[in-house]
């Protein structure tokens, strides 16, 4: 049981949140309504996605204060729980790409991990900036036109239509194309949460004394480069690209990894 604790918790959270959103439309629940772009918590607290908000602002439209306040609340929230906690605990696409990744391992598709010359993990930051530029030039929130995240979420709430093809495309790309292709290389939304994650409080902590160098964590981690300290130093995973998914903690048999709170007061060693 131990080695799927966080995985289970995440799936329960992801599905639970989607259920709340679904119920808001289907049954008029008011716990969490709207979509990730902008939501209402308990019918009163506004929430808004920071990157979506920036895209709308880039078009030159002066947004309502509810959205701005909502974006501030969400930024603050992920500053505490870890930027890309959104990715691994909320985003529905994560279930799709995790499944693709799991299948890859089962089918042993990534035996020879090739370095993709054209596709670097930094690409997402370029795409993120490009998204804002295109928004400004064309006059619509550019990533929202093709975002598989909200297409999938709206699909679940309002019905999929042809939008399902985008989700399938992501699945196939991650399965047969590039390992961690979408979430680890392309997704600008994940990139924006990575930036918040750079300074986040809740992070994974590594205890190098306890580590037996089994490398299970690196195999399972979707952003394995963030675990560069494993069996080298006892420091925290401070890279914003860590999704706080806790899979590394799950699979570690030696208690060498755990969630911890970054202490800004203590001088970082």
């Amino acid at each position: 049981m131990k080695n799927i604790k966080y995985l289970l918790l995440r799936r329960v959270t992801q599905i639970g949140i989607l259920l709340l959103y679904f119920g808001a439309n289907a049954y008029g629940w008011s716990i969490l309504s709207g979509t990730f772009g902008s939501s209402l918590l308990f019918g009163s607290v506004p929430l808004a996605d920071p990157y979506t908000t920036l895209q709308v602002l880039a078009t030159g439209f002066v947004l309502g204060s509810d959205v701005l306040l909502g974006a501030a609340i969400i930024t603050l929230f992920y500053f505490v729980v870890g930027g890309r906690a959104f990715c691994s605990w909320i985003c529905p696409i994560n279930m799709v790409t995790d499944l693709a990744n799991w299948l890859r391992r089962k089918l042993q598709l990534d035996k020879e991990q090739t370095t993709h010359r054209f596709l670097k993990r930094k690409a997402r930051y370029w795409i993120m900036v490009l998204g804002l530029i295109v928004s400004a030039v064309v006059g619509i929130a550019a990533f929202e036109v093709l975002s598989p995240i909200t297409i999938m979420q709206r699909g679940i709430i309002f019905g999929f239509g042809a939008g399902v093809s985008v989700v399938i495309a992501i699945f196939l790309f991650d399965l047969f194309g590039v390992k961690n292709g979408w979430c680890g290389h392309l997704c600008p939304l994940g990139a924006s949460y990575s930036l918040i994650g750079k300074a986040s409080l809740i992070r994974v902590d590594h205890d190098h004394e306890a580590c037996t160098n089994c490398m299970k964590c690196k195999v399972v981690c979707p952003e394995s480069h963030v675990l560069h300290m494993v069996n080298k130093e006892s420091i925290m995973v401070t890279d914003g690209e860590c999704t706080n998914c806790g899979r590394c903690i799950d699979v570690c048999g030696d208690d060498a990894l755990k969630f911890s709170i970054r202490n800004y007061l203590k001088k970082e060693q």
Binding site: T35, G37, T52, V56, T59, L63, V67
Partner: peptide, 14 residues
């Protein structure tokens, strides 16, 4: 302007 402004939250439809 609507195309710029709408954040696609679906609150109106809900």
């Amino acid at each position: 302007d609507f195309l710029k402004a709408c954040i696609k939250c679906g609150l109106c439809a809900e």
